[in-house]
């Protein structure tokens, strides 16, 4: 907590993260570059899926990133809610669009792969449905920040983020708890990955690349949010206002 308290000082945050930014950018570029090359040219097709297995190298890290980003948003929200650390609120707010992007990427690539493999673009199976709920949670979270004033939005959005975290175990274990069209976990399972090393390498590099890209973009967004605040630019991009509902004539 000591380090977190120090980091919650915006000036200190800016100086500490300055060298992290280019480092994360370089790592992201390297991992995504080498990972993509391996994914396209340096890994075998699958014995049943054929070449469409390569969608997995984009889909799986995106889905993992979607869940990890939500966990990050929920924890930052908790710190912001209880300790009133403004920087934690900023971190949660600036991470959420990345989480939404990961979620949409996972849904779209999964849909394309599903058409090739299952024969359907979409199915209301527990894994797919809970993942779509995650996209709506992110969208709702971001909408709160757009329509409320900053102090009120921070509290309300934080509550939504924390309550919505119950969806994370549901997504993760949906394939264990229920019968699903979506397959069970391949990499993280008790008796080791059911995948050869030639596929695990590009998957691992892409996952690392996504994580580094997340750190890079998040820091960039947080730094510009702090700069905007210092310059006195209003944080709320929308002019929408919440009005009381009109009274219904009986």
């Amino acid at each position: 907590m000591g380090m977190l308290t120090q980091l919650s000082n915006p000036a200190r945050f800016l100086s500490v993260t300055r060298p992290v930014l280019p480092a994360a950018g370089v790592i992201a570029l390297l991992c995504l570059g080498v990972g993509s090359w391996l994914a396209f040219f340096g890994s075998p097709p699958d014995f049943r899926q054929g070449e469409s297995v390569r969608i997995m190298y984009v889909h799986v890290p995106a889905a993992w990133g979607a869940l990890q980003t939500y966990a990050f948003v929920a924890i930052a929200s908790l710190i912001g809610f209880v300790w009133r650390h403004r920087l934690a609120d900023v971190a949660a707010r600036e991470a959420a669009p990345l989480g939404l992007a990961f979620t949409v990427l996972a849904l779209v690539t999964g849909s394309l792969w599903g058409k090739v493999t299952w024969g359907v673009f979409w199915d209301w199976d527990p894994r797919l449905t809970s993942m779509m709920v995650l996209a709506f949670l992110y969208a709702g979270y971001l909408a709160i920040w757009r329509v409320m004033d900053e102090a009120q939005a921070a509290r309300t959005a934080a509550l939504l983020a924390m309550l919505g975290a119950v969806n994370l175990p549901i997504i993760k274990f949906s394939v264990e708890w229920w019968d699903t069209l979506h397959q069970k976990a391949t990499v993280i399972r008790a008796d080791g990955p059911a995948m050869p090393a030639s596929m695990l390498w590009p998957l691992g590099l892409m996952t690392l690349g996504y994580a580094a890209l997340f750190v890079f973009v998040l820091l960039l967004r947080m730094r510009s949010a702090l700069a905007r605040r210092r310059a006195g630019v209003p944080a709320r991009p929308s002019r929408a206002v919440l009005e009381p509902a009109p009274e219904v004539a009986s």
Binding site: P45, F47, W118, L181
Partner: peptide
């Protein structure tokens, strides 16, 4: 009819 795909990945040569 939807095909179910399981969690096993393998190279065709293997």
């Amino acid at each position: 009819v939807a095909a179910r795909h399981d969690e096993l990945y393998m190279a065709p040569e293997v």
